[in-house]
Design a binder for these strands. Structure first.
Lengths: 216, 216
DNA sequence: TGTACATCAGTGAACGCGCGTTCACTGATGTAC
DNA sequence: TGTACATCAGTGAACGCGCGTTCACTGATGTAC
């Protein structure tokens, strides 16, 4: 798939096509486009990452886009894999040494803050999710893959509870934090916005009968 | 505000302007436009409710729009008030006679189903929330009002738990169900999609150590 | 009640804009001898 | 190594489309006498 542009030139017999300097440069350009698209999508949503804007941000002109991607939907699917997939994002990094409960507390605590609410670059889930949900199957499948990987990473740190497996808890915690942040962002400026963050934080950690959190 | 189009014509002294047959008809038309916009927004999102599409759905032509609304943003704000505000939606209706825990079980159970996931007309929160979160302050304020009313309605039916008030639980339950449905919709078609619904259902109701739900 | 004029809700064409996509091109890189 | 031709990554203008918004208009409704 990756090398289908460099067809069999067969200089000697039927060997694999050589990887040329041009191929390397093209891959780099492709990565630059993807990076630009991911940055814009993370900040402003998938549909804000239009082809003209993305190509300009990557230092290129529009026409070159279709040398790298078959369509806008193909770019979207790749962006989702890049934004949500692979290694857990900064929200989960640096927490890996904690034990179960403390890990969940820190992950949720970092996520559900007013600062995080007011800084859309923090986490892309709330921003992009609706676009995925109403998008084509190609994009949904890419998201399901990425979600699975993310849940597995979350799951290994999450303690189970009576009648609830670690995986179930991880899934619920993701839904709770994403839904909470989304509600808080959509109602930003009103008192209820802060209330949502606080309530979700509590509900995510039933092990604590009463929360004691630093203000702000 | 509502009558500023019918200016002081002062037929006799300085009495309030008469309400004419035209005024009534205009209000009806305005409601028709709002209704059409709400229906499209609920199904496909706020930005799918474009002025040409809305006006056509209302049986009118584009030009007439600005006789009723100052701008697209003004329409959006009103649509949000209509969709989210006022009386609790069908998701909460018909459940009012239940006692606390049973009510939550039924509300959550109805919400987090595969059928609901696959039918976007059911609840507009997941579809529209991102657009609100990235939209102008006018729209966010309208949403905060509507959210407050919805939470208050939810709250009166929701039982508290040790260390968690009914209001906190209501807020968390909304975040959990909305986030869960959104994740499920975005990953529809994959196994993880059904898992999310199941896990959120469990997590919303900690009173039950083990869930017993009918399949499908 | 009947007529003459004023209002204004809704029409329909037009605007400038950004979108996704196409395409003839150019010039640096790669290949053959 | 040096020259002549082939490839193809990226350019830049153009397309058709739907968007939000504007505006001159028309004809039914409302007002004045």
């Amino acid at each position: 798939m990756k090398t289908h542009t460099a067809r069999a030139r067969s200089s000697a017999s039927t060997r694999a096509p050589r990887i040329t300097q041009r191929d390397i440069k093209k891959q780099e350009t492709r990565q630059r486009i993807l990076q630009a698209a991911a940055t814009i999508a993370r900040r402003e949503g998938l549909q804000a990452a239009s082809i003209p804007r993305v190509m300009e941000a990557a230092g290129l002109t529009v026409g070159g886009f279709y040398g790298h991607f078959a369509s806008k939907a193909a770019l979207d699917a790749e962006v989702i894999r890049r934004v949500f997939g692979a290694i857990p994002g900064r929200g989960l990094s640096g927490l890996d040494n904690s034990s179960g409960l403390a890990w969940v507390q820190r992950a949720v605590g970092r996520y559900l803050t007013a600062m995080h609410r007011d800084n859309p670059e923090g986490c892309a889930y709330p921003t992009i999710l609706s676009a995925i949900a109403t998008g084509p199957a190609e994009v949904k499948a890419a998201f399901a893959d990425a979600l699975n990987m993310r849940v597995k990473a979350f799951e290994t740190h999450t303690p189970a509870l009576p009648g609830v497996t670690a995986r179930e808890r991880a899934l619920a915690a993701m839904a709770l934090t994403i839904g909470g942040l989304l509600l808080a962002r959509a109602s930003a400026g009103a008192a209820v916005s802060d209330e949502v963050l606080e309530a979700c934080h509590k509900w995510a950690i039933p092990e604590l009968d009463r929360m004691v959190r630093p203000k702000r």
